[in-house]
Nucleic acid binder design. Structure first.
Lengths: 198, 198
DNA sequence: ACAATAATCAAATGGTGATTTGATTATAAA
DNA sequence: TTTATAATCAAATCACCATTTGATTATTGT
């Protein structure tokens, strides 16, 4: 029982996924290195060959989540669709991300708090969060400038939108009444209605 | 050093507040009984005279938070104001609660997850959460029935509203650009605009 | 095939932290 | 004032867990 044959060796990304899953179910503090290791058929000690600490594991999870959603959002914002379409696409991408990478999403939304006092962790996270928020603002401001949306407090609007979307991670159920797409569209409709000029 | 003079004895409610504060800053798992005890000038062991376990402390915090907001919301819903006014009042009450009892609010929103797998804890919590959600729905349905609001998916609308309001606990800063009241009204305006008939 | 490197494991190590226990002193009830 | 009860403390207990250490085996480059 030492090094496993090639097809069984565990790769960094599997470990990140496993960590996200365990963080989701037990929380960062409640998760043990053993739990995470067991998920990928390793022992706790072996994880240290891949990551220097439990903290770095959470950092990797947070980064994976933020990187993913920023990329998806960036693609939408840079397209030349009308602002209303962009907003709807953003809602779909956000919710799709939350559902497809549910463990990671929950870790980002709920477990990031466990590390956010540490400046070394906080700074890059906050930078990514701000990048994302800027992208959202950009779409709303674009719409207002184009006269498609009514002028309102963009900061509050975007934060409310964010909250509504993130909150989906709390109540979404596979077997729920509505599909992922329907949920995204209903939420997008709500916020688009709020942006409509009178 | 044993029993303290009467004016210095610590009461249950102070402990609950202290627990909420520590849970807020360190998370349920990260908080130690010592941390909580120190906040009210006790030793860890002494807490057990007041609460049987750390778990019961979190339960007490959750209950305090839910009871408070349900009471506030109930008063509003039972009033005879028009639905739009009720919705605005609900937003104000929700945000006021989040800001005034910030530690408790954050514990309810973010730390409840730590206990929600335990059926004995989950059941009463879910009951309260459903009660609150029903009150929100009631106002929207009332408005639709009265023809004041457009018909939309009430379930999603209410969850989005909830998410937007709860999210305030993440970004609110004492020294922010807007007052508590302005934030509540801006968010209420957004959701009311979404309810307006075309 | 050999040497170097990578991936693993089992078994420490060192702490920490929830809860228990057995005094000890203040308050309240009789 | 006695006696019972309440509130506290200091010092165990007992687990659990992140991380380290020293083998051990697979893979890879030469």
């Amino acid at each position: 029982m030492a090094r496993k044959p090639a097809e069984q060796t565990v790769h960094r990304e599997e470990i990140v996924r496993a960590a996200a899953e365990v963080f989701h179910h037990k929380g960062y503090r409640g998760a043990t290195m053993s739990d995470i290791a067991a998920t990928v058929n390793l022992t706790a000690g072996s994880l240290y060959h891949h990551f220097p600490s439990k903290e770095e594991l959470l950092i990797a999870v947070l980064d994976a989540g933020m990187t993913q959603i920023i990329a998806a959002t960036q693609a939408i914002v840079q397209s030349d669709a009308p602002p209303a379409d962009k907003l709807r696409a953003i809602a779909r991408a956000h919710i799709s991300g939350i559902i497809t990478h549910h463990h990671i999403a929950v870790a980002v939304i709920f477990e990031s708090r466990a590390l956010l006092e540490k400046p070394g962790v906080r700074a890059p996270y906050v930078r990514q969060r701000d990048t994302l928020e800027r992208l959202y603002r950009q779409v709303v401001e674009e719409g207002i400038a184009a006269g498609a949306f009514r002028a309102l407090d963009v900061g509050i609007f975007v934060k409310a939108f964010f909250g509504a979307l993130n909150w989906v991670s709390v109540w979404y159920r596979e077997d729920g009444r509505l599909s992922e797409r329907e949920i995204a569209d209903e939420i997008a409709n709500t916020f688009l209605a709020a942006l409509t000029k009178v």
